[in-house]
Nucleic acid binder design. Structure first.
Lengths: 109, 109
DNA sequence: CGCCTATTTGGCTATATTGCCAACCATGCA
DNA sequence: TGCATGGTTGGCAATATAGCCAAATAGGCG
């Protein structure tokens, strides 16, 4: 049966896929981690020290980013190093900044 | 007192601001709405028909997008039209697509 | 092997998000 | 004024997230 909502239903799985990626970035700690990884790879212990949370918490955040395909890990010795898998994340945030700037200008009106 | 986690703490409010915007996009229905609005303004009733959810649900999604500064509304007659406030959203999604493509390639290995 | 360090996983509680229904508000029009 | 249409808001139940502790796993090294 044809309904008006078909476009949405047809796109749904693709929308969900994209949502999974965006959701992974929708947390301050994970955002911070991504920005830190833009500078180069980091081990879990370094990130944990920077974030100041329990190491298990940071590990879980990294797991979310990994499952979203945003980072990849590399075990060397008894440490695990994480790095960005996709380089365009910076542009990605450019747009978020535009939104924030637009809000700031709005506030000045 | 100086701790290793200072960078994170100093950035925290900015990270939260960005998180608010990203979170607003992290839902399939809202993603769909944003893409639909890229084509032009739409009234709540149109979007509701396309999404196929309760109108109150759609209204709340629009409210989330509005509060994030992503869309703006315009009441005309007894209808409310919504439109994108920021035009760069398309590029924004380009990166998400890169992540998804990279995952697809990964799967073929 | 036994122990230490680094990390992941399980489990639990606290909190946030989602979606529906019902009630309410605003506009247009007979 | 009364009623229909379009939209928002309040409230609630179901579900998903976050963060901590404790337990498990993995590598390095004496």
């Amino acid at each position: 049966m044809q309904t008006t909502a078909d476009t949405f239903q047809q796109q749904k799985s693709h929308l969900l896929a994209r949502t999974r990626v965006i959701k992974a970035l929708a947390h301050p700690t994970r955002l911070f981690i991504v920005e830190e990884l833009e500078k180069g790879e980091r081990c879990v212990c370094d990130l944990t020290a920077m974030v100041g949370a329990d190491i298990s918490t940071v590990s879980k955040h990294l797991s979310v980013l990994r499952q979203a395909g945003i980072v990849e890990d590399d075990k060397r010795g008894n440490q695990v190093f994480y790095r960005l898998k996709v380089s365009c994340i910076l542009n990605f945030f450019g747009c978020v900044e535009s939104v924030l700037n637009s809000q700031r200008n709005e506030a000045l009106k």
